[in-house]
Amino acid sequence: MPDLPASPPSGPVRTGPPTVGPDVALPAGTAGVPAMIAGMSGWLGADPLRRLVARFGGTWPAGDLADTLRFLDEFSALHWDFRGGRERPDAREPDLDPGTAELVRAVATALGLVRPVPPARPAYAHLVVLGGLAHACLRRVAYAAHLLHTGLRVHGEVAMLGSFRPLSDWERRTLADAGLPADETEVDVLDTAVRRVFGVPAAVERDGVDAGHPHQSWSSRTYRSAGLPPVRVLAAPSSEPQRRRAHTADTQRFWAGHVQLAPGDAVLMVTAPIYVPFQHCDALRTLAVPYGCGIDTVGVDPTIADLTRLPEPTLSPGRYLQEIRSAIRAMRALHDQLAR
């Protein structure tokens, strides 16, 4: 476990990186309900998260896992929610003292939000790349291609999951500064990245529905490259189109319906390390539980050349706190589903 201070330092602040140990394990993606419950209990009850709660003035609750999840959801909403319903780039950054900022980084490392890990298996039924901000889409597609070109075997398909979310002005500027095409939506960036990284000029299969509204429309484009599995770029509709755009769980469910997931299928999800706990637990809820498939989730290794010419973004303590909250909320949703 990390060497984490239990309370704010009274002397000079240590500014070097803390000593860290092995990451706290996430719930297993191939186990049954009891193991998932045990995995959530282990991650949520780990010493680093307890110390983080104490640092922000919280008292760990007595009670079962449901009580802990309820407390952590409410506590993190009060102390670690800097989005307020906005998109991630629009979140504010909290003003933390150096000791607290150091603690946050150490806890994030221990909880699996910092260090990338390689895939656990040599082969999977499917490889799924989760969409996100423009630079992340490019980096994740490039990393998926790297995995395939260095020996990862995929027996089914490679799927890039996104939506018709319009790019922000910041995302467009980031693409322009890197000399990349000025795409309009998240799924456009995924599509551009696939054609660029895999060297495929045009889709061999197209499907979709233009419902006149981006929250209700969907599209599917499939590319083929010699020696590789088919690559699908999918834009999902929202399950609540009157309220919001499609989110991660929407894209996962929509893809699962298209690919016809089977019990026992092993699925590898690719995202950024900071989102691994949250999106892994979302995938357990939306894919592993209803379909009986296995889930492994990995973050892009930033040391791998990504072919995008985009700088690696700096991740702040506020970003890590926000995504620890996202993981807590994803585990609460998973627990609620398992309890039904």
Results as ranks from 00 to 15, higher is better:
residue 159 A to E: 08
residue 140 R to E: 00
residue 155 H to A: 12
residue 86 R to Q: 14
residue 97 D to E: 15
residue 93 E to S: 12
residue 84 G to N: 04
residue 91 A to E: 12
residue 156 G to A: 14
residue 152 L to I: 15
residue 120 A to C: 09
residue 153 R to P: 00
residue 89 P to W: 06
residue 151 G to Y: 09
residue 118 P to E: 05
residue 79 H to M: 13
residue 74 E to I: 13
residue 125 A to E: 13
residue 77 A to T: 11
residue 142 A to D: 04
residue 77 A to E: 15
residue 84 G to T: 04
residue 99 G to C: 09
residue 87 E to Q: 09
residue 65 L to T: 09
residue 81 D to P: 05
residue 78 L to K: 14
residue 148 L to I: 03
residue 146 H to Q: 03
residue 110 A to F: 02
residue 128 V to A: 07
residue 76 S to Q: 06
residue 134 A to I: 04
residue 69 L to M: 10
residue 76 S to G: 12
residue 124 Y to D: 08
residue 129 V to P: 01
residue 115 R to P: 05
residue 81 D to V: 09
residue 96 L to C: 01
residue 72 L to E: 00
residue 85 G to I: 07
residue 144 A to G: 09
residue 137 C to Y: 03
residue 68 T to P: 02
residue 145 A to H: 12
residue 137 C to M: 04
residue 155 H to D: 13
residue 104 V to Y: 01
residue 124 Y to W: 10
residue 147 L to D: 01
residue 106 A to S: 08
residue 66 A to Q: 13
residue 130 L to C: 07
residue 152 L to H: 08
residue 153 R to Y: 02
residue 95 D to P: 07
residue 128 V to W: 08
residue 91 A to I: 06
residue 154 V to L: 12
residue 67 D to V: 14
residue 107 V to I: 13
residue 137 C to N: 14
residue 110 A to R: 01
residue 152 L to W: 15
residue 138 L to M: 11
residue 115 R to I: 15
residue 155 H to E: 14
residue 89 P to M: 13
residue 119 P to W: 10
residue 138 L to V: 05
residue 83 R to A: 13
residue 158 V to L: 07
residue 86 R to W: 05
residue 155 H to I: 03
residue 68 T to K: 10
residue 112 G to A: 05
residue 79 H to F: 09
residue 102 E to N: 11
residue 96 L to E: 03
residue 152 L to A: 05
residue 154 V to E: 04
residue 100 T to S: 14
residue 109 T to G: 00
residue 154 V to N: 11
residue 80 W to G: 00
residue 158 V to W: 10
residue 99 G to N: 10
residue 118 P to N: 07
residue 134 A to S: 07
residue 112 G to I: 02
residue 134 A to W: 01
residue 66 A to L: 11
residue 137 C to D: 14
residue 141 V to T: 09
residue 138 L to K: 01
residue 141 V to S: 00
residue 98 P to L: 02
residue 109 T to E: 10
residue 91 A to N: 04
residue 111 L to N: 03
residue 143 Y to P: 05
residue 137 C to A: 09
residue 77 A to L: 13
residue 87 E to Y: 06
residue 117 V to D: 00
residue 70 R to Q: 11
residue 106 A to F: 10
residue 97 D to P: 04
residue 100 T to R: 03
residue 111 L to W: 04
residue 125 A to R: 15
residue 106 A to K: 07
residue 70 R to G: 13
residue 66 A to P: 09
